[in-house]
Amino acid sequence: MTESIIFYALLTSQLVLMSFYFPRRIHQRMQTAFYTYTPDQYPRLYPKPASYYERLHQNYRLANQLLLILGCSVMMAMLAIDFDLSAKHAQMVPWAIFMIQMMPQLALELAEFKQLKLMRQSDQRTTRKAELSPRRLFDIVPRPLFTVTIIILTVSFVLDAFMNDFNIGFDTSTFYRWLILGLGNMGFALGAWWLIYARKKNPYQSGTERKLQARANISSMLYVSIGMSLFVVISETIDTYELVRLSPAAMSLYCQLIAMASLSTMLNTLRLDRLDFEVYREEPQSA
């Protein structure tokens, strides 16, 4: 009974957080940017007609509202059928809901990539600028956060092995967890490298702003990495102490922590007042 209460409380929190709270903040941010830095005054920021952006904002909001209703319906159905929390793969239910909840976010990211591509294509300037100083990982990422991430990752590897009596053959679950954690963190490392050194996607972005964006992205990756490591330890503890009915609740909590780590870090670091929108104004025509 207690496990059910914890699970449904966490699932409700997941639905509210992912389909109401964060979408609302993101929608407000998009609206503020759109109406403060209008297409008339900042044409470089809007390679497509203004109506496209209004439609995009509306669709994003609508998609999240629909997903909130859908999520609540699923939760009601689970309550109605008295969903068995100890069922095999029960913990995948909050994960699946999370993945569906992330769809509008993913669509927004894809729209941003297309937008940046159009901005690059429409950029007619022949001059290019670059900072004459190297970008290094620790100029961008706080060293303590990086160190803590590595320590927690190492501890999770060791604890996982310890709980399985250091039985880490190729056919053991420990090996697969190590593999998933290792590959996930390698993906983050590649992503960090790409953010620091790859060709910038926004042609108008200044060096300072690029560093700010890289800091936000890499910090959120580090927080997600910490979340992944902790999740491995928690799920292993759940398995060891046969608390299987808590798995779905743990998964829901994990999803929410991931969302908070990534979206919250991005929204708080990349505040609109920290970004330079003047670069998106039309250059004065020379006589």
Partner: peptide, 18 residues
């Protein structure tokens, strides 16, 4: 810029200036 100041790597500068 002063003696001893670090410069960006070739790859970084080339990427930044396209």
């Amino acid at each position: 810029i002063h003696p001893g100041d670090p410069l960006p790597s070739i790859r970084q500068l080339a990427n930044d200036l396209a």
